[in-house]
């Protein structure tokens, strides 16, 4: 009995101290963090490209902007877009061609920050067209009439592969695209089930480990430092919550800048949210994480979307891009 009483008073003592500590903390807190942070959910994909937002969250860039950030890993853009439209996610991550197609189909999206961009350097980019080691294909021009694997048909993969073929003087009309998930591509290339494949990191490193040869740096061949993907929201949300969007953009740009300038830290971050093996993480080529919204490359992607029949109507880039 006595001991339980003693324990009780010890507990009360502890909680009293805790309360005092809390009160002190509240008293010393600055004005900005006293306001409750806005809860924001962002739909992302477990790929290399989104390392900055994970890094930025860890560094407290979003907290500093009064944003309580939740990152929701989705299994691909197909799961992100409906969730952003329905308002479960406030923001999402998507490649630019998907956004251009969505825009031309009447989904009113707004890009709020750059996602990632091609490095613009052939031989040192995160995206390429690879062929089996014993292939006779030596350049994008030789792909005419061949079977090429892309992760999604009628998207950024096939349009940039075709653009690379045109640049190399090949005829893209006879190329046959097959849909294959990136993780399945190394095996498909090694077994010769496809003549070529469009791969991005980490599968570029993995296929090259298995002897595959790069025949074209398709993003470099398509446009200068092509902006591959972006963070977006709906026009409705951008209109009703301009303040949150502004703060999200600020935090996102700070994250991109940080990742761009601390590339090894960004590389380490990959070990936290992806399951890419460490020896692969150490060697992959990271994308460019500039904050610059590349209008020119987006225009090129939009032109390709029209040329290759992905969209019927010319997309309105003025309302899509900030």
């Amino acid at each position: 009995m006595k001991s339980s009483l003693a324990m009780k008073s010890a507990l009360t003592m502890k909680s009293a101290l805790g309360l005092i500590a809390l009160a002190l903390a509240a008293a010393f807190a600055t004005g900005s963090s006293a306001r409750a942070a806005d809860k924001v959910t962002v739909g992302v994909i477990p790929i290399v490209d989104v390392a900055p937002i994970y890094l930025g969250k860890e560094k407290g860039f979003f907290e500093k902007q009064g944003i309580d950030l939740t990152l929701q890993l989705a299994q691909g853009g197909a799961a992100i877009v409906p969730s952003v439209v329905s308002g479960q996610y406030q923001f999402g991550f998507s490649n630019m061609t998907s956004l251009i197609v969505a825009q031309s189909r009447g989904l009113d999206f707004k890009v709020v920050a750059a996602g990632d961009s091609s490095t613009g350097k052939a031989g040192k980019d995160f995206s390429a067209i690879v062929v089996p080691k014993d292939s006779t294909i030596s350049g994008a021009g030789d792909l005419a009439g061949k079977t090429v694997a892309v992760n999604n048909l009628k998207n950024i993969g096939d349009t940039t592969v075709k653009a690379a073929m045109r640049k190399a003087g090949g005829d893209p009309s006879g190329v046959k695209f097959v849909e294959l998930a990136f993780p399945d591509m190394p095996a498909a290339v090694a077994n010769g089930r496809v003549d070529a494949a469009w791969v991005v990191e980490p599968f570029l490193t993995i296929t090259r480990d298995q002897g595959a040869k790069v025949v074209s740096w398709n993003l470099v061949d398509t446009a200068d430092r092509l902006m591959t993907a972006a963070y977006f929201t709906t026009a409705r949300y951008a209109k009703s919550h301009p303040d949150i969007v502004k703060r999200f953009t600020a935090a996102m740009n700070q994250s991109l800048d940080y990742a761009q300038n601390h590339r090894e830290e960004a590389r380490r971050e990959l070990l936290s949210y992806t399951r890419i093996p460490k020896d692969v993480v150490d060697r992959i080529t990271l994308p460019d994480w500039t904050t610059k919204i590349n209008r020119k490359s987006t225009q090129t992607l939009a032109d390709l979307a029209v040329k290759d029949g992905l969209v019927k109507k010319r997309p309105d880039l003025g309302s899509l891009l900030p």
Binding site: I45, P46, I47, Q72, L73, A74, Q75, A79, A181, F182, P183, P186, P202, F203, I206, T274, R275, I276, P277, V280
Partner: peptide, 20 residues
């Protein structure tokens, strides 16, 4: 696995998309 709801299926998908 397909929607990415948390659980073992999501871990399969994560390992797959990381090449593990």
């Amino acid at each position: 696995l397909i929607i990415g709801a948390p659980g073992l299926g999501k871990q399969i998908a994560l390992a797959q998309s990381g090449g593990a």
